[in-house]
């Protein structure tokens, strides 16, 4: 692998079993992502964006072809190894935030660090830093139910970023947000991408997100129809 190559996808096919055969959600995809990219899969509903992110995130496996993520062949990975890969190097941001409702903001952001068995003092520092990045230092003790949608998504970003992962996968992160909040969290991610050199891969059909992307990969019916570098 070249040093800057984070993800390398070749000949990737994903089929789902269906009544009377298979449904091909992704069809012969070849792609690479380098370090520090701010890229996104763009396309209509059902085009395969989420499926793509799930495979890159080692939550799912290809039916054919390869996906190499940070030197790990997703096909060959045991479920334990995949968990370790996610734990150490991947961050996820979901459309529905997926915060743990009974935890405070602090505890939610702390969670990935607990899995990494960091010491309490290291955890505290990292969590407070991450909350500062997303501008939520004053909400440390709040619970998700007490936050607005935008604040929840910012907590989710802090949670994804707190361990400074090499790659963050964000699936429709703005779908539940109004435009002010969308811009706010995108600016936050853009800044983190520049400051920490974290690679971001989005899945979206939201124009507000698309405007921030520096690389736009268009998907349609499981095929890449365009892969453009956008200058902005």
């Amino acid at each position: 692998m070249k040093n800057s190559e984070i993800v390398k996808i070749s000949g990737l096919v994903k089929k789902f079993p269906m009544a009377g055969g298979f449904f091909t959600a992704l069809d012969k995809i070849d792609l690479t992502f380098g370090e520090g990219e701010f890229a996104g899969f763009v396309g209509p509903s059902g085009s395969g964006k989420t499926t793509m992110l799930n495979i890159i995130g080692s939550l799912d496996t290809p039916s054919e072809g390869n996906a190499i993520v940070l030197d790990n062949d997703i096909n060959q990975l045991s479920s334990h190894k995949a968990a370790l890969l996610r734990r150490k190097h991947l961050g996820f941001i979901f459309q529905t935030y997926n915060l743990l409702p009974v935890y405070t903001v602090f505890e939610n952001v702390e969670f990935p660090l607990l899995l990494l068995r960091m010491s309490a003092s290291q955890r505290k520092k990292a969590v407070l830093d991450a909350l500062e990045w997303v501008g939520l230092s004053d909400k440390v003790k709040s619970r998700p139910a007490q936050l607005s949608g935008g604040e929840c998504q910012r907590v989710a970003i802090a949670r994804a970023m707190v361990k400074k992962p090499l790659l963050v996968l964000a699936d429709e992160p703005t779908a539940n947000l109004d435009s002010d909040n969308s811009h706010h969290i995108l600016k936050t991610m853009e800044k983190l991408n520049k400051d920490l050199l974290t690679t971001f891969i989005f899945a979206t059909h939201d124009d507000k997100v698309i405007r921030y992307l520096r690389r736009k990969i268009s998907l349609r019916d499981g095929k890449v129809t365009a892969d453009e570098i956008v200058k902005n």
Binding site: R86, L90, L115
Partner: peptide, 8 residues
């Protein structure tokens, strides 16, 4: 979510 965050 636990699994996505790397719990086995």
């Amino acid at each position: 979510t636990y699994i996505a965050m790397g719990m086995t």
